[in-house]
Amino acid sequence: MIEQWFPNVDWEKMWEATYETLYMTGISVVITFVLGILLGLLLFLTSKGQLWQNKAVYGITAVIVNVFRSIPFIILIVLLIPFTKALLGTIIGENAALPALIIGAAPFYARMVEIALREIDKGVIEAARAMGASTWTIIRKVLIPESLPALVSGLTVTAIALVGYTAMAGVIGAGGLGNLAFLDGFQRSRNDVTMMATIIILIIVFIIQFIGDTAVRKLDKR
């Protein structure tokens, strides 16, 4: 029956594209998470009234984050072509998509991290200081654990956005389901291929959402 509805789908190619999409999403989510946490912490700690309060550092970081967050992703990929080429020697393939994916998503996630950290009860941070905790201990044992549900739900949103970004990156040659849908589906007028790629992307998104929601429910002890 599936063969009947999707006569033009080459399953081997479809699975390969699915793998590529998962690969790009997976790697970029991990790196975005790390960079986003670092940038978000920097934004939070240097903001007014916090441990490293510093107007200049906060201002510069905020501007960089806002600029990269505002550039439409498809334009960002194009703008980053020279950078990607210098870094990886190529602009084709899954790895070539990673710089753009990460640079596009990390500032977006950093803002969510900053918001998550702001939600932490100030009193808890004060209590940790009163106990003699160092800033590093406060980051590790108060800021991250106390904001973890918000960090995870923010990461879920970011991961889903990244799935969308990989599809866009696919159109200009990064591989994956977006690439397949565009080249094999759209350009050859095989709507069933486009449809199948869409269905798989939807399944990936639903799974990410489900994992994220479950994790948040498990983590939140409030």
Binding site: D121, G123, V124, E126, A127, R129, A130, M131, G132, A133, S134, V142, P145, E146, L148, L219, K221, R222
Partner: peptide, 20 residues
């Protein structure tokens, strides 16, 4: 200062416990 703070306990109006 951190060492000194370890020898001074403090409790708060809103308890300030870590929910996690």
């Amino acid at each position: 200062l951190r060492k000194a703070r370890q020898e001074i306990g403090m409790i708060f109006q809103h308890f300030n416990l870590l929910w996690s």
